[in-house]
Simulated scan of single mutants.
Amino acid sequence: MVRSREPYVLAFSALAAGLAEGRYGWGRPLVVTEIAAALHLSPTPVREALARLAGEGLIDHRPGYGYASLAFTGADLADLYALHELHLLEAAGRSAFNALPKDLGEDDVRAIEGFFRALVLRTGSRALDRAHRRLMAQLGPALRVEAQVLGPDRNGLRRQRACYDAQDRVGLIEEIQRWHERRKQSSRAVVEAMRAADQSIFQI
């Protein structure tokens, strides 16, 4: 029985990973036959995987047109940033300030997302973890463009980590709020850059 589900698992895993990496860009069609051919699968498990992703809000389903990667407006992206901020404020409020991983890095968007991920994981809340992972999948297409639009904010990351290391909960909360205010203000510019770049290249 498990073997009969393997094609679906392959399709879902490949698509979810691609979405999290921003591989499908802004509002690009997700064509069942093309995905199935690239994965060497029949269309049925691909269609099932796309239906689940649509149900989880990770892609759009347009009746009569099929599936597509999310096409944000500036307001949509600002809302996602605001929700991300709420997740992190909850994590900061619960934090026991346990030691962070040593391999978070310092210089790129993956470093700050790694730090945020560590904050969430250290709450021990599976519900918050699941919600945060889903949100990160929705934000995936925007993250690479965000880094280009905003540029690195290494000092902001260092301040957040310094507050964490000092167990300064108030300071950490203020830094998270400052970081996300900058993101929310940039949301329209990020979406415009996503549209202009149309950076989705179908590679699995």
Rank of each mutant, 00 (worst) to 15 (best):
F12E: 14
A75Y: 07
L150D: 06
D76H: 07
R94C: 06
E6D: 10
Q199V: 03
L119A: 14
L135I: 02
L157M: 13
L77S: 09
S42F: 03
M1L: 11
P7C: 10
E90P: 00
G93V: 03
V145S: 07
H40L: 08
M1K: 03
A20K: 00
F12L: 15
R130A: 15
A166L: 08
R182H: 09
L86F: 12
A162I: 00
I204V: 14
Y24V: 00
V149W: 04
V46E: 09
A127H: 05
R154Q: 13
L39D: 05
D60P: 00
R110A: 15
D168G: 04
L172Y: 05
D107G: 15
I176W: 07
H180I: 04
L135T: 00
S200W: 10
V31F: 05
P45Y: 04
A197E: 09
A16L: 12
D103T: 06
Y164S: 03
Q185C: 12
E90V: 10
G64H: 06
A111T: 05
C163S: 14
Q199H: 15
T33P: 01
E48K: 05
A189F: 04
L19A: 01
R117K: 14
V190I: 15
R3T: 11
K102R: 13
Y164A: 03
H40V: 04
L128S: 10
